[in-house]
Structure formats: structure tokens, C-alpha cells
């Protein structure tokens, strides 16, 4: 279906409003929808991307219920693409696989639920690269030192606190 405004692009937004029984429906491409919103021609205010707009792809997407559609999300998130490989979340969802390792960071929010539905628990335990292991060890050490520091201060053992503070600084400097 073509956009009813420019009659060039495919319509991806289907807008319906019902004001005092007066119905209006419009099929628009994303550009025209954006432009009309900017010009105040669509009286939708902040709810522009809410459920009044149902992307056409939504209806024939079997994963529609599992993943939230990028077009339904706020604009900043909807237009989000992976800075490394250029994948959009829609592409990720279509293929069911990531474009690059950075995708997992880019789409962390969108993926959290589906990862839980595959694996249940969503936190890794097990083997790790040596670099990550070393970082983890340092972080644990810092945690313990900070706890000791707190205790030293509350005991007014300032000499010990100074030693601990220097040690913390030294580890932080190495990270």
C-alpha cells in the first residue's frame, strides 16, 4: 500500500483517530508521518508512536508478540542501529541472529526478554577469557578493599584507611 500523502513510498504507519465519533484514518510512509507530525497536522501529541500507529509489518510478524517492534518504540530507540555493523533491531529479529558482537550491547534492552525465554537465567557463569577474569578479580578485590576502608573510617583507624585508600587508587590506576 502506498503512502496516501506522497503516493511514492510504501506506507508503514496506519493512523486511526476517533474524536467524538468522527473517524479519520491515514496510511503514511515514515517520512510523511514525521513531517506531518512536525507541522502539527497530526493531532497526536506525544502519543505519536503509541498504539494508534501500528506498523504494517506487525500483522504478519509471528514474533510480534515476543519482540517489541522497533517502530513502536520511542523514536530514539526505533531508529537505533548498531554502530559497528549497521544492523537495526528489525533485521536482528528477522534473521534471529546478531550482526556482530556489538549488537548485543546496542539492543540489550530489546533482547533481554527473548534471551530469558531461551535460557531462563540471563547471567553468565563459567569460563571466561583471561583478560575478563583478571578484570573480575580486580573488581572483587576493590569491592573488598572499599568495604575494609569503610570499616576503618568508622573505627576512626585513619592510618589503616590511608593505606587502604592508596591501595584502591593503585588498583584503579591499573585497570
Amino acid at each position: 500500500m502506498l503512502c496516501e500523502k506522497c503516493k511514492k513510498n510504501n506506507a508503514s504507519f496506519f493512523f486511526e483517530e476517533n474524536i467524538n465519533g468522527k473517524k479519520r484514518s491515514l496510511a503514511l510512509c515514515s517520512e510523511c508521518a514525521e513531517e506531518m507530525k512536525k507541522n502539527g497536522e497530526l493531532n497526536v501529541g506525544t502519543s505519536f508512536f503509541d498504539s494508534a500507529f501500528i506498523p504494517s509489518s506487525f500483522h504478519n510478524d509471528i514474533f510480534g508478540g515476543l519482540f517489541s517492534d522497533t517502530n513502536m518504540l520511542p523514536k530514539s530507540s526505533g531508529q537505533k542501529s548498531c554502530p559497528v555493523c549497521g544492523y537495526t533491531f528489525a533485521e536482528f529479529r528477522r534473521v534471529g541472529k546478531a550482526g556482530c558482537s556489538e549488537c548485543y550491547k546496542t539492543f540489550a534492552e530489546e533482547l533481554a526478554q527473548s534471551i530469558r525465554s531461551i535460557h531462563g537465567n540471563a547471567k553468565h557463569i563459567g569460563r571466561a577469557p583471561a583478560k575478563a577474569k583478571a578484570k573480575n578479580k580486580k573488581e572483587n578485590e576493590l569491592k573488598a578493599l572499599r568495604k575494609e576502608l569503610k570499616a576503618a573510617i568508622s573505627d576512626e583507624n585513619f592510618e589503616q584507611a590511608a593505606i587502604l585508600r592508596d591501595r584502591i587508587k593503585e588498583i584503579e590506576g591499573n585497570m
Binding site: 548485543y104 534471551i115 535460557h119 553468565h124 563459567g126
Partner: peptide, 28 residues
């Protein structure tokens, strides 16, 4: 795997573990 780890920079995340093409292999 230790040999791979010592000579290559492997995609890994604290939360998700080893990052894989398909999310079904994430973690270990």
C-alpha cells in the same frame, strides 16, 4: 580454548558470556 584466548581477542560480555551469532549459544 586457552590457546585461542591467549592469542585472539574474543567477543565476551560479563553478563552474556561468549557472544555468538545466534542468541541460543550465548553464555558458555
Amino acid at each position: 580454548d586457552d590457546i585461542i584466548d591467549s592469542s585472539l581477542d574474543i567477543a565476551y560480555d560479563e553478563e552474556l558470556g561468549y557472544l555468538t551469532h545466534c542468541p541460543t549459544n550465548l553464555g558458555t
